Amino acid sequence: MKKIILSIALIPFLFSCDSSSSESDTDDEGILLMEERNAVAVIDAKSGSMTSGTVSFEEKDGEVEIDAEIKGLSPGSHAIHIHENGDCSADDGKSAGGHWNPTNRAHGKWGMPPFHVGDIGNLEVGEDSVGTLSLETDKWCIGCEDANKNILGKAIIIHEGPDDFSSQPSGAAGPRIGCGEIVESSVM
């Protein structure tokens, strides 16, 4: 009877050691490689603005890189945040909910505690009406099982004004002038 119990107890271990996986592979030297994953948010105008653009995400080796290019903005600074709901159906973008803040941190400036994972920062816009932003982080993932890191199903919001990095809970950035749902993308 003990042999049967021991054999049954080993079954989960044997299946967990299966080297075939849709999310990882190994190179010729047996080093574990993570599959690259991509996501995108296509930004649509809100609150009567002319805002448009694309925010792309690429996850590789446990890091997510974000690249944003937003057009139709007035010169100056415009806040960009991740919001909790991937819903841009409201004309004013409020259907996206508040900032994505799964760990209940104070709002702040990215990389300078305290801040939360939805705090991205400001786009700097010149006379050409285009704002860009790039950063890389291990605080996000694309489609992983960690609800504190997974950006899929959230929204990118572009605000009319700058984030002051201190007003709670959202940086006093003004109306939402652009919104795009973050969805997985097969081609970047």
Rank of each mutant, 00 (worst) to 15 (best):
M1V: 13
K3S: 15
I8Q: 13
L10Y: 07
P12V: 15
F13G: 06
L14Y: 15
C17G: 13
S20L: 11
D28W: 12
E36H: 15
R37V: 14
N38S: 08
A39Q: 05
S47Q: 04
G48D: 03
S49A: 06
T51L: 09
T54G: 03
T54S: 14
K60Y: 12
G62F: 07
E63L: 07
E63Q: 07
E63M: 08
I66K: 11
D67N: 10
I70V: 03
I70D: 02
K71Q: 13
G76M: 05
G76N: 02
H78Y: 09
A79F: 01
A79V: 02
I80F: 00
I80Y: 01
H83G: 00
H83M: 11
E84V: 11
E84H: 10
G86Y: 03
C88H: 01
S89P: 04
S89Y: 06
S89C: 04
A90H: 12
D92T: 04
K94L: 14
K94C: 07
H99I: 12
P102S: 10
R105P: 04
A106S: 14
G111L: 00
M112P: 02
P114M: 12
H116D: 14
V117N: 03
G118K: 04
G121P: 01
G121C: 06
L123C: 12
S129N: 15
L133I: 05
E136L: 06
T137P: 01
W140G: 10
E145G: 05
A147S: 07
K149N: 13
I151F: 05
L152F: 11
L152Y: 04
K154S: 00
I158V: 14
E160F: 13
S170L: 06
G171S: 09
A172L: 03
G174E: 08
R176C: 10
R176L: 09
G178E: 09
C179S: 04
E181Q: 11
I182N: 00
E184G: 14
S186M: 11
S186T: 15
V187G: 11
